[in-house]
């Protein structure tokens, strides 16, 4: 296929300029995705760490399940 045939097969795109700034929307999206640990989840993680510190022999058993 020559260049002319290719150009004829692909019609020109009409409007190529953006109608609005996409960067603020991107910033909002990034802000939405930021992970926030709730206090309850933090407490659960702390309890799990204390549990493993008290029963270190269970670390191997836990790793076996992950």
């Amino acid at each position: 296929m020559s260049g002319d045939e290719l150009r004829r097969a692909l019609p020109p795109v009409g409007e190529t300029e953006l109608t609005r700034d996409l960067w603020p929307a991107m910033l909002c999206r990034m802000e939405e995705r930021r992970v926030r640990l709730t206090w309850l989840d933090g407490a659960l993680a702390a309890v799990a760490m204390v549990w493993l510190a008290v029963f270190p022999e269970t670390i191997g058993v836990l790793l076996y399940q992950l």
Binding site: A48, W51, L52, E57, T58, Q65
Partner: peptide, 14 residues
């Protein structure tokens, strides 16, 4: 060991 690991596994999985 499995019984002791179960509660913490539940938390970690959650």
């Amino acid at each position: 060991g499995a019984a002791i690991a179960l509660p913490v596994a539940v938390v970690v999985y959650y």
